[in-house]
Computed example of a mutant assay.
Amino acid sequence: MTSWALLPLALVLLCSSSFCSLGCDLTQDLQEDFLLLNQISTFPLVPCWKDRTSFNFPKEVMEGSQLQRGNATVIIHEMLQQIFTIFSLKAVPAAWNQTQFMQLFIGLDRQLQQLEKCLGQNGEWEEPFLESENLRLILKNYFQGISHYLQGKKYSHCAWEVVRIEIRRVFLFMSKLTRKLRD
């Protein structure tokens, strides 16, 4: 079974994390957004192999020492915020399914608003943990690298496809993070 096939199961487990304990169940929204991201383009990736790069997802985030539930919520919020920012660029490929892209964009915005409300209810917004702030800065640098890559490639269609694949990996990480919190 591929890791993509496990995503629905992983997102169901999301409810066991701090999201549900705060009444903030993003399970269905994350699953829908992931599926939209997969369906948004049918462009074959073979012509884009020359544009592949390693964005080096930050190990500090993956190996977060004693990652607390509050930190995880802040990290997921930061990831969604950065994805939203990247997709806010006006240069997304016209070949992408624009209806699905707008649904994805709206879904990201809805999730961000929901998480901000949840973080505010839990007091994590007012008094952020030092570890979560460090992880947020590390994530901002990672996503800034993605933005610079797009800029350097002049927002080409292949560059966007490479970024789309990387963002799918980020969605998979978010699902792994929620599983880790459940266990």
Rank of each mutant, 00 (worst) to 15 (best):
I75F: 01
L67S: 01
A91R: 14
A94P: 01
A95E: 13
L108E: 08
P93Q: 07
T85N: 14
Q100S: 11
Q82W: 08
F101V: 04
E63G: 05
E78T: 15
M102P: 00
M79F: 06
Q98F: 05
K90W: 11
I106W: 07
Q103C: 05
K90R: 14
L67Q: 07
S65T: 09
N71T: 12
G64M: 02
N56I: 05
A91Q: 15
D109M: 07
V46K: 12
T85L: 15
F105G: 00
F43I: 13
N71P: 00
E78R: 15
F84R: 11
Q68L: 07
I75A: 01
F84T: 14
F43N: 05
Q68E: 13
L45N: 06
D51W: 06
T53A: 11
F43C: 03
G64P: 01
S65N: 11
M102Y: 10
N97W: 02
F101M: 09
A94N: 11
E63I: 04
L67G: 00
Q103W: 04
E78F: 03
F105E: 04
P47S: 04
E78I: 05
I76L: 09
A94Q: 15
N71D: 14
C48N: 03
E60K: 08
L104F: 15
P58Q: 05
T99Q: 12
M102L: 14
F105N: 06
I75R: 04
L89N: 15
Q100C: 02
Q81T: 15
I75M: 07
P47D: 00
G64R: 04
S41Q: 02
G64I: 02
A95R: 13
Q68F: 01
N97Q: 08
S41R: 04
I83E: 08
S41W: 00
L67A: 04
M62C: 09
S88H: 10
E60Q: 11
P47F: 05
N71S: 12
A91E: 15
V74A: 07
S65K: 14
L104Y: 10
R52D: 13
I86W: 04
P44W: 02
T42D: 11
G70Q: 08
V74T: 10
F87T: 11
M79R: 08
D109H: 11
R52W: 12
T53W: 07
T85H: 14
L108N: 05
A72Q: 08
E60P: 02
P58S: 06
T73P: 00
Q103R: 12
L104S: 03
L108K: 05
Q100P: 00
F57T: 02
